[in-house]
């Protein structure tokens, strides 16, 4: 066990994340934080508050809204931004909105490409952010396991996995030319368990969707999705049932699979997570398109 001088693993992870955030603020002109409303974003926001306390974090929160997020997520987003006193910038891809892009009709790949990746790139072009924090973790997915904490992007927002900069110890290289930028992942070294344990210890607010509740669900695309609004076709809705479910990750509701669960408290959620045999991304339809799909999306400019 630890002696008094040593820090616990969570304290060390916390210190590392705070150090990364302060480095970015010192080095970059126009940083922002991508706030996706999920548990990782919640932890990231909490760390940002600690890093700059008592001032609110000196950058805006940005959210790329696909118009298909759970309604509860949007409410939670607006409430949290107000509570922490940060500016919230929301961007929706106007062309996508005009075309009425829908994951039901156009499929998950096209929907994600237009509403998420394109929407994100548009937003970055409009606001000219030179550093954007994201809550991605390396244990989530195999190409993320390969990514630096400062993930360099060219002027087209592309990631080049074959030309990553060296990153030694806690020395981060933030040099960049005009129009180039970096994505920063302060939670790179956290695992799913670390995140939950930290939420539990620090009492960090997270959306109710993570906790089990009776919700209306239907089978769609091999997953159980929640009927969140009336854009779910009547055809599908015919077979809907009320079930005790919760979500392990949050995204667009037609693309996010619910899991049957009775976990209504944080320890119960953690218990369930430790006993499960599938990864959290299994509930996400977009990752299963093909073996290298995340890497491909990143090279196109996705987070």
């Amino acid at each position: 066990m630890l002696n008094k001088k040593q820090m616990t693993h969570l304290k060390q992870l916390e210190a590392e994340s705070i150090h990364i955030m302060r480095e970015v603020i010192a080095e970059f002109d126009n940083p922002a934080m991508l706030y996706s409303v999920g548990k990782d974003s919640s932890v990231m926001l909490h760390l940002a508050q600690k890093a700059f306390y008592p001032a609110p974090p000196p950058f805006p929160l940005v959210h790329v809204d696909t118009t298909w997020k759970f309604r509860e997520m949007i409410e939670f987003r607006d409430k949290r931004a107000k509570e922490v006193g940060m500016e919230l910038i929301v961007h929706i891809n106007p062309q996508g909105e005009e075309m009425n892009i829908s994951p039901f009709e156009h499929g998950s790949a096209l929907h994600t490409d237009i509403m998420k990746t394109e929407g994100l790139k548009q937003m970055l072009d409009i606001y000219k952010f030179d550093a954007v924090f994201g809550g991605a973790r390396r244990d989530e997915e195999k190409s993320r396991a390969k990514e630096r904490i400062y993930s360099f992007r060219d002027k087209h927002h592309r990631w080049d996995p074959k030309a990553q900069r060296p990153e030694l110890w806690n020395i981060y290289n933030g040099r960049h030319h005009k129009d180039e930028s970096i994505r920063v992942f302060p939670l790179s070294n956290w695992t799913e368990l670390d995140i939950w344990q930290y939420i539990y210890l620090e009492d960090i607010p997270i959306p109710e969707l993570y906790f089990a509740k009776e919700r209306e669900v239907v089978e769609y695309g091999g997953a159980k999705i929640m009927v969140d609004d009336n854009r779910v076709s009547d055809e599908l809705r015919k077979n809907s049932r009320m079930e005790m479910v919760r979500f392990r990750t949050l995204g667009c509701y037609p693309l996010t699979g619910a899991v049957e669960s009775a976990a209504t408290t944080l320890p119960e959620i953690i218990q369930e997570m430790l006993l499960t045999t599938t990864s959290e991304r299994q509930g996400r339809v977009i990752d299963q398109d093909s073996s290298g799909s995340m890497e491909k999306k990143k090279m196109e400019g996705y987070f």
């Binding site: 390396r138 993320r144 396991a145 996995p161 990553q164 368990l193 073996s291």
Partner: peptide
Amino acid sequence: GLQSEREQGITIDVAYRYFS
């Protein structure tokens, strides 16, 4: 985890993994 690593059967860049 990278496509070109899998195709060539070699490690091209560092990967981080976690356990406890």
